[in-house]
Nucleic acid binder design. Structure first.
Lengths: 195, 195
DNA sequence: ACATTTCCATACCGATTAGTATGGCGCAAA
DNA sequence: TTTGCGCCATACTAATCGGTATGGAAATGT
């Protein structure tokens, strides 16, 4: 009941690493086992299939470990523009695990798996909704504080900001880290265009 | 010198279909052969490896067939806002081949392959640069015509627009086609915020 | 007519894949 | 002490992978 949980986590962590760098479909179980001390018997004791492990990865690792970092990246100054800007900046530039080269695990998985597995799509959508919700609250707060016109649809803006992040993660893979800076510049322009 | 070119194209077209829907790494040569009348001997006569076929796919199919559609999607009215809006709208909504579910082949390949194969990254970057260039010209034209302040950096805006497209393609996979409309609404707001 | 090259078909290879079958170790309850 | 269960190790399978070897039909040049 204790040691077992450790091996389960070891499997998920290594899987996360490999899938983050090589993609879900390109990461084999044997490769995971080869780079850990876990054997195949242990793997199939904890997960009844490869797909179930993928689902556990989304809900356990990505949701429970990565998501808090996202939430923490949101400052709470009075200026909502500053808060949203810093949020994206923290995620793009300062994140301790994510790199420009390999992008964002969530974005990657959406791109690769959303059309192929409905379970995956729904699980990833759930992650997305939580982020969206937090951004929405920040928008609404700004509107209540008179920093932003109430005409704006908070949901639309929230989704738009997330869309920008997803796009930047994709473009960064081609253009390199330098692009993150020019992107953030334009993002700042956008935020200040919101009246 | 004639029939041979046909089989080459048949290979590339079917490869494009499968890779577009399932991803590059998940598409096997055997699967391509199974769904065409092409044999393995023919395949390896035209391409010395799987990777070379992938490169040919980027330069031949995507560049020579998809790219003209992109270029055609750009209207040439006087209003640059209208032109850019319609460009994204055409690509997202009206494109005859691309679907919301499977996204954009270029975006997909960038996400999957840019970190893994430097050749791929460069070839995809080249595609991107052409699109960027066309958008830049539209921005510059608008600036010369006094529709837009010369303070704006045309390159940054062009990349920003492409970033938005990439993000929308990604988000669409999770949220479905309906999101394209709300996205386009926010994109329109952005365009009109450019003074 | 013959020779040569282009283009493709078939059979095969070793490596790798997801998944299974089975056995055993350690520990707690009886 | 024995029984049972949680946890894992080893060995295996059938299928599939990218790639090769080889032979031959069809077109082409001489």
């Amino acid at each position: 009941m204790f040691k077992a949980e450790l091996t389960r986590i070891e499997i998920l962590r290594k899987s996360f690493d490999l899938i983050y760098k090589n993609g879900y479909q390109a990461t084999s179980i044997d490769e995971i086992l080869a780079t850990t001390k876990v054997t195949k018997g242990a793997f199939y004791y904890h997960f009844k299939s490869r797909e179930e492990m993928g689902m556990a990865l989304i809900s356990d690792v990505m949701h429970k470990e990565l998501w808090p970092a996202v939430k923490k990246s949101i400052s709470t100054t009075k200026d909502f523009r500053k808060n949203l800007y810093k949020m994206l900046r923290n995620l793009l530039i300062e994140h301790p695990v994510l790199t420009c080269e390999y992008g964002c695990p969530s974005v990657n998985l959406i791109q690769e798996m959303a059309p192929l597995h409905e379970h995956f799509r729904k699980a990833l959508k759930k992650n997305l909704s939580e982020w969206q919700k937090v951004i929405e609250e920040e928008i609404v707060r700004a509107q209540s504080a008179g920093q932003l016109s109430a005409d704006h649809d908070s949901q639309n803006i929230a989704l738009y900001v997330i869309t920008l992040y997803h796009g930047a993660r994709n473009m960064g893979k081609v253009l390199g880290k330098a692009y993150y800076m020019t992107f953030l510049g334009e993002f700042d322009n956008y935020l200040h265009s919101l009246k």
